[in-house]
Computed example of a mutant assay.
Amino acid sequence: MNQCTVIALLPPPAHVLALTAAPGHHRPEAGHILCELGEHHDGDHATMLWDEGTHPASAVWAHWHTHRARLLPHSWCAALDPRDTDHACGLFAGHPPGHSWDITDPTDEAITHDLARQHPHLSR
Rank of each mutant, 00 (worst) to 15 (best):
H99N: 08
P23Y: 05
D51I: 11
A22Y: 04
T47R: 11
W50P: 06
E29T: 12
W61D: 08
I103Q: 04
L10N: 03
A18H: 03
H32R: 11
T66M: 15
F92E: 03
P56C: 02
A62E: 07
G94C: 05
P28E: 07
L71V: 01
H45W: 04
G31W: 12
V6A: 07
D105H: 00
A21P: 08
P120E: 00
E109H: 15
D105Q: 00
H55A: 10
P23L: 06
H121W: 12
W50F: 14
T5Y: 01
T47P: 10
P23F: 09
G43N: 04
D108A: 15
M1K: 13
P96K: 04
T47W: 11
H26V: 15
E109A: 05
W101H: 00
H67R: 12
P23G: 02
E29S: 12
M1D: 09
P82H: 01
T85P: 12
T5F: 06
S75D: 01
T5A: 02
S75V: 06
A22G: 08
W76C: 09
L72K: 08
C35G: 01
L49M: 00
E109W: 14
T66L: 15
H99S: 11
D114R: 15
P11A: 11
Q118G: 00
R83N: 14
H99F: 00
T47S: 11
A22C: 05
S100F: 06
C77I: 13
P28R: 04
H65G: 04
A78W: 12
L34F: 07
H119M: 10
M1C: 12
T47Q: 09
T47K: 12
F92L: 07
G43L: 01
N2G: 08
D86L: 12
L115H: 05
L10Q: 01
S100I: 05
E36C: 09
G53T: 04
M1F: 15
G38Y: 08
A21T: 15
S100T: 00
T85G: 09
R68F: 13
C4P: 01
L72N: 09
H65D: 06
L37A: 06
L10T: 02
G38F: 04
V60G: 07
R70M: 10
A18K: 00
A93G: 13
P96M: 03
L115Q: 08
D84N: 07
H40G: 14
E52W: 10
